[in-house]
Design a protein around this nucleic acid. Structure first.
Lengths: 354, 354
DNA sequence: TTGTAGGCGTTATCAA
DNA sequence: TTGATAACGCCTACAA
C-alpha cells in the first residue's frame, strides 16, 4: 500500500479523488509515492463501491457496413473524451443475439448502451434502469438520435427531379429498418408532391426493397435495370452507398453507362463513395456529430431526447459524377408501385442477394 | 440477498460456481430463488476477488479500414464464444495515443490485449504481466499472428509473371508497417528469383510506397501510370484492396482500360473487392482464422506463439477480372528501384494523398 | 486536517 | 455438506 508514505488509506483516497481537505504538503508526499510505485486504483473495487463503471456498451448489426464502422469509431472517440471506454458487440443483425448482448451488457453494469437495433425491430426490451439510446435506426420505446433520413432522401430525390428525371426508381432498405422506411418515405414525399400539382409532369414511382449491402444493391439494381427499355428508370435513388456501388456494378454489367444512361444517388457518404468510378453523388450523414450526440446524451452531458421525439441531424447532398440530366424524355406510365404511398410501405417486392 | 433461501452466502457462491459439494436439494432451492429474484452476481465484486475480468482489449489503427473492421468483428465473435467481452479502442495510427490506450487497458485489468500496432512501430512497450498479441502487423518483442504476407505477395506477383507481365510495379504499404514490408519482400523475392535465372527475361522492379487507404492508392497509381508509355507498368501489385481500388480509379481517370491495358492485383480480400468494376483479382487473407487464433492464444486455449516466431496463415489468390495477359511486349529497362532488393526496403519514394 | 472503521458482493478457508 | 468469517481494495462517515 501507498500508506507507506506514512499516511492512512483514507488520505490516499482523498488525494486520489481531489478532495479539498488535504494539506498541500501531504498531498505532494502521497502523489510522489503514487508516482514512484506506479500505483493505480483497482477499477473493480472502485466500481463496486461507486456503482459506476465508466464503461459503455455499443451494439451494432454488422461492422462490415462502413457506415457502422465509422459510427463505432466516432463513438469510441467521443466516449474516450468523456473518460469512458466502450465494450463493442455485434448482433449480426439478429434480434435474439442482440437481446442476449443487451443482457450481457446489463450484467456488466455498463453506464449506458448505444444500440443500432437489428433489422425488423420496432421496440427494444431494455434492461430497466440502464440508459439506452438508439442510433440511426429509431425504435418507438427508446430515445434516439439519427440523421433526418426522410429529409435527406427528399433532398436526394428532389435533386434528381430538378435534373429532369421523371422515372426515378428507389432501392429501399430492408422493410424492417426504420431508417430505410424513413428514406423511402422521403422518396414518396417527393413523388406525392408532384402528384399534387396537376400541371407538373407525373413521376412514376418504382420501388424495390433490398438489404443495405453491396451484393443486395447489385441484385436490386439488376432487377430494376433488366426491365424493358420503356419501363427502365433513368435514375435510381438508393438507401445506402453500398447499394449504390452495387448498382454501379449492375449498370456496368448490363452495359448501361453512368451517368449518361442512368443516374445513381447514394446515401451515407462513406469514404469510398468518393473513389468509385464514377464518383458517387450521395446524401451524406453528419456521422461524427450523431455519434457525439449519442454519447453525451448517454453520459448525461446533455439531456436525453424524449422518447418518440428523437434528435435528428440534417443531411446534405454531395453532387459528384454519378448523376446527370436524363438523355431522352422517359415515358411516364407504369410503375411497380402505384396508389397511396403510405399503404405501400412495408409491402414492397423484396430482392435479396443469393 | 438470496440467502433468504435459508442458506449462507457461501452456499450460494458454491451453487453459482458449480461446486460439487452441494446437495441436489439445496442446489435446487437456491437456483429457484436465483431465478425468482433474477439475481446476477456482481461482476465487480467477482473480478475484485478472482483477478479475472473476462474482458479483453482490442486496439486498432483505423476502423475505416474494412480489413480491420472485419478483424474486430471476428475477434469479438471469437471472444464471446470464449465467454469474454471486448473493449474496443482506436489508436488512429498514432503511437502516443496507442501507448495511452494500452495503459488504459492495463488499468482496466483486462485479461489480455489484441493489438494491430500503429504504423512505424517495431516494438511495443507492453504493460508487463498482461498477455498481449500482435495481429497482422508483427513487432519484434511481442507474440504475433498474421497472414503470411510475404508468401501471399509472392503468390500474387508470380501469378502476374505467369500471365506474361514483366514490367510489374508494386505499391508498397507505408514503410513503417511490418505487413507492408513483408509484402514488399514477397514482391522482391519474385523479382530476384528471375534475376537468378539468366535465361529468363528480366523483371523490371518499380516500387512506390503509400498508405493503405483508397486515396493514397489512387495517388500512387496516378504516379505510376503517369510515367511515359515506355516506362509505364503493365501490371500493378498493390498492398491492399483499398489501394487497388484507388488504382482502378487512377487508371480510369487516365483512360487506361483494366485489364486490357493494365492488370491490378489487390491484397486482403475484403467483400468490396468482388464488387468493383472490374472485379478485383486479389490475395485473400484467412481473416476469421487469424482472429480466432489470436483470441484463443490470448485466452490460453492454445499456446502463445513464441516471440520472434509468429503464427502465420497462408493466403490464397482469387482470380477475377482485373488481371489479364499484357497486350504488348513491354520494355525491360529502367525501374525506380534497382540494385540489391534488401537495401531498398525502407528507402522508397513515398506518395501520399494530399 | 487526518485517522479509523464499516461495508460494498464475492470467494476461500476453516470449523462444525 | 454447510455455515461462519476473513479478505479483496476502495470510499465515506464519523471521530479525533
Amino acid at each position: 500500500m501507498a500508506e507507506r508514505a506514512g499516511v492512512a488509506v483514507g488520505t490516499v483516497s482523498r488525494v486520489l479523488n481531489g478532495h479539498p481537505s488535504v494539506t498541500a504538503e501531504i498531498r505532494a508526499r502521497v502523489e510522489a509515492v503514487i508516482k514512484e510505485l506506479g500505483y493505480r486504483p483497482d477499477p473493480f473495487a472502485r466500481s463496486m463501491r461507486s456503482k459506476i463503471s465508466r464503461l459503455i456498451g455499443i451494439v451494432i448489426p454488422d461492422l462490415t457496413n462502413p457506415f457502422f464502422a465509422e459510427l463505432v469509431q466516432c463513438a469510441e472517440h467521443a466516449a474516450t473524451a468523456h473518460g469512458h471506454n466502450v465494450i463493442f458487440m455485434t448482433s449480426f443483425d439478429d434480434a435474439a443475439r442482440e437481446a442476449d448482448r443487451l443482457t450481457q451488457l446489463a450484467g456488466r453494469k455498463v453506464d449506458g448502451i448505444i444500440i443500432v437495433p437489428s433489422t425488423g425491430l420496432h421496440s427494444i426490451k431494455a434492461p430497466k434502469g440502464l440508459p439506452l439510446i438508439a442510433v440511426d435506426r429509431l425504435v418507438n420505446n427508446v430515445p434516439g438520435v439519427a440523421a433526418d433520413h426522410r429529409g435527406g432522401a427528399r433532398i436526394g430525390v428532389e435533386y434528381l427531379v430538378r435534373l429532369g428525371h421523371r422515372r426515378i426508381a428507389c432501392i429501399a432498405g430492408p422493410a424492417g429498418s426504420a431508417s430505410a422506411q424513413d428514406r423511402l418515405r422521403g422518396y414518396l414525399d417527393v413523388v406525392e408532391a408532384f402528384d399534387d400539382q396537376p400541371s407538373a409532369p407525373k413521376i412514376a414511382p418504382l420501388v424495390v426493397a433490398a438489404a443495405f449491402d453491396y451484393e443486395s444493391g447489385r441484385a436490386a439494381g439488376t432487377y430494376l435495370l433488366a426491365r424493358p427499355r420503356s419501363e427502365r428508370p433513368t435514375a435510381i435513388f438508393t438507401s445506402s452507398d453500398q447499394q449504390a456501388i452495387g448498382c454501379l456494378r449492375a449498370a456496368n454489367d448490363l452495359g448501361i453507362p453512368v451517368p449518361a444512361g442512368l443516374s445513381i444517388v447514394g446515401f451515407d457518404g462513406i469514404p469510398l463513395s468518393n473513389l468509385t468510378t464514377p464518383r458517387l453523388t450521395t446524401v451524406i450523414q453528419p456521422i461524427s456529430r450523431i455519434a457525439e450526440a449519442a454519447v453525451s446524451a448517454l453520459l448525461g452531458q446533455r439531456e436525453m431526447p424524449p422518447i418518440g421525439k428523437p434528435h435528428l441531424f440534417t443531411c446534405a447532398l454531395v453532387e459528384r459524377e454519378s448523376s446527370a440530366p436524363p438523355v431522352q424524355e422517359p415515358a411516364v406510365d407504369g410503375g411497380l408501385l402505384m396508389g397511396p404511398a403510405e399503404q405501400m410501405i412495408g409491402a414492397l417486392p423484396n430482392v435479396r442477394a443469393e
